[in-house]
Amino acid sequence: MSKQALPVVDLHAVACCPPIAARPLDADQAAVVAPMFKALGDPVRLRLMSMIASVPEICVCDLTPAFDLSGPTVSHHLKVLRDAGLVDSERRGTWVWYRVRPEAFRRLGALLEIGHS
């Protein structure tokens, strides 16, 4: 597995992208959204994203036991999701709470819009 870092995503730049079914993305547009898809391309991160998206917010203490992974490994995957602009986090005492960034999913959804025939 590559140790290449994903760039932090500027969500305001994502709004520039029309649905890929409407017209091809240019190189700059693809570079903006690719980190989000890359972050979701890992099975652990996809499961984490599903768990986070299924509730208003969730504590890392509830996420870690769902995986046969160390706490630091789960934290790494959560950091990738955060850096990709898919989730927000907030430290409360000793725990970190995660929630989906709805605007990121709206933009990804709009990008994947097929349209009606």
Rank of each mutant, 00 (worst) to 15 (best):
D28T: 12
Q29M: 01
A30P: 11
A31P: 03
V32K: 01
V33A: 09
V33S: 06
A34E: 09
A34N: 06
P35S: 02
P35W: 05
K38N: 12
K38S: 15
L40A: 08
L40H: 00
G41A: 09
D42P: 02
P43W: 02
P43T: 04
V44W: 03
R45C: 03
L46A: 12
L46G: 07
R47L: 08
R47A: 10
R47T: 11
R47H: 02
L48M: 06
L48H: 00
L48K: 02
S50D: 12
M51P: 08
I52L: 01
A53H: 11
A53C: 10
A53T: 09
S54W: 03
S54P: 02
V55K: 10
P56G: 05
E57N: 10
E57F: 11
E57V: 09
E57H: 10
C59I: 05
C59Y: 05
C61M: 15
D62N: 14
L63M: 05
T64A: 13
P65L: 06
A66G: 08
A66E: 10
F67Y: 00
D68V: 13
L69S: 11
G71M: 09
G71K: 13
P72S: 07
P72K: 02
T73P: 13
V74E: 05
S75D: 15
S75R: 15
H76C: 04
H76T: 07
H77N: 02
H77K: 00
L78F: 01
K79W: 04
K79D: 11
K79V: 10
V80Y: 13
V80K: 05
R82D: 08
R82H: 10
D83H: 09
D83M: 03
L86A: 03
V87I: 11
S89R: 15
E90R: 11
E90P: 06
E90C: 05
